[in-house]
Amino acid sequence: MLNINNLHVKLEDEDKAILKGLTLEVPAGEVHAIMGPNGSGKSTLSYVLSGRDGYVVTEGEATLDGASLLDMDPEVRAAAGLFLAFQYPVEIPGVGNMTFLRTAVNAQRKARGEAELTAGEFLKVVRAKAADLQISPDMLKRPVNVGFSGGEKKRNEILQMAMLEPRMCIMDETDSGLDVDAMRLVADGVNALRSPDRSFLVITHYQRLLDHIKPDVVHILSNGRIIKSGGPELALEVEENGYGDLLAEAG
C-alpha cells in the first residue's frame, strides 16, 4: 500500500531539513500510528504525502500501490486514494458543505473514469453517513466548517473520509481539541471504515486515541526519522515514561 523510502524533506523558504531519511511501510488493511515529540516532523510527513506546497523533497520516494506520489498534484493523489484528515480543518464561507463534498466525490470519480453520482444518489448516501457521525442536516447545509465546533469540524473530516472512500487515510492529530465523547464518535467512524484494503496512518501525541483506534504498529518519529517501531505496547510505554528513554536509546 504506502511505501516511504529514505525520504528527505526540507522547507522551501529556508534551508532547514525536517525529514531526514524516513522509511516506513504501511501494508493494506493495517493501522499504523506515528507518535513523536513536538517538532519531530509528524505534520510535515502528512503534508508532504498529500502534496502541500512549501516543502522540497531532496531525496527518497513515496509510493501508493506502486505509483510515485511525490510528482502528483494534490487532487491527483486524492483520486489515487490518499486522504488527509486535517489537524485544523479550513473554514470556507459561502461554499455549502454539500456542494463541496459532492464536487469532491464526483471529481474523484471522474478522474478514475467512474460515473458521477447524481444529486439524488449523493444525497441518499451522504445523509446516511452523516447520521452515523451524528452530523445534522443543518451542518450539511452550512458553509464548509463555518461556525462548526472543534468536534464538529473533526466529525466533518471523517464524513469526508467516509464519502470519498480513500484507500490510504492519514489522520493528523485528529484527537486534538476533542472531548471524550467526540473522540469516541470519531474513532467509531474510523473503525467503521477499517477494511482489508484500506490502511490508516494515525498521527497523534497521545495514547488515548489509540485506545479507541487500535493500531497494528506504532512508530516513534524523532528528528525526522523513525527511531523505533513496535506493537501497541509502545504507545503505552510513551504514555508512561515520555520520549526521554526512547530518544536516549536511539542516541
Binding site: S50, G51, R52, D53, D73, P74, E75, R77, A78, A79, F83, L84, F86, P89, V90, I92, P93, G94, V95, F100, L101, T103, A104, V105, A107, Q108, A111, P143, Q160, L164
Partner: peptide, 28 residues
Amino acid sequence: DEALFYLRSRGVPRDRAIVFLVLSFLAD
C-alpha cells in the same frame, strides 16, 4: 493557500477550487 490546498486534497481540481474560493470571497 491553506484553503486551496484543503480543497485540492479532497480531489477538487485546482481550477474548480479557485472558483470555490472566489465565490467564497464574494459571499459577504
